[in-house]
């Protein structure tokens, strides 16, 4: 079982897509980076909130689910390119696998991602749905 702190410290990112941006080169990073891979020590990292809109870059439909996700199978996992530039790995929900396609516009929603067993902490965070 994981200590709750492991989840808790990432709440700003998982709830509200708070990433970082290098004000030297304007590149946006999500999840946040503490050093800009472009500018490195010359970069200036500051907080940056992404707005949760984006486009699906690729996806897979998971039939053999890992622990904690068994009851959701089959489900869609995808990589979404957010407006602003950063990419995230995320579930695409409220969408039939046959209706999903590369390039489709998606938006972030707030969902239960996993839980630390029946008695543990519930992990909430972003997932994405088709823009309707």
């Amino acid at each position: 079982m994981a200590a709750a702190a492991r989840f808790w410290r990432k709440i700003p990112q998982r709830y509200n897509l708070i990433g970082t941006k290098c004000s030297a080169c304007n590149k946006v990073y999500f999840p946040p980076r503490y050093i800009c891979p472009v500018c490195r020590r010359a970069g200036k990292i500051e907080e940056f909130k992404l707005d949760g809109k984006g486009e699906l870059v690729t996806y897979a439909v998971i039939y053999i689910a890992p622990r904690g996700f068994e009851s959701q199978a089959p489900y869609i996992i995808g990589i979404v390119e957010l407006d602003g530039g950063a990419r995230v790995t995320t579930q695409i929900v409220d969408c039939d696998p046959k209706d999903v396609e590369i390039g489709m516009p998606v938006k972030a929603v707030f969902r239960k991602v996993n839980e630390d067993g029946e008695s543990g902490v519930i992990y909430y965070g972003y997932k994405f749905t088709p823009m309707r």
Binding site: K10, P31, V57, T58, Y59, A60, V61, I62, I64, A65, P66, F69, Q72, Y75, I77, G78, I79, V88, T89, T90, Q91, I102, V113, N114, Y123, G125, K127
Partner: peptide
Amino acid sequence: DQEWETFFGATFPSLYAMMARR
């Protein structure tokens, strides 16, 4: 990445499946 890939339900086969799809 345990915090930003598998946390959200990605499995190892699914990462390669996403490469295959693309």
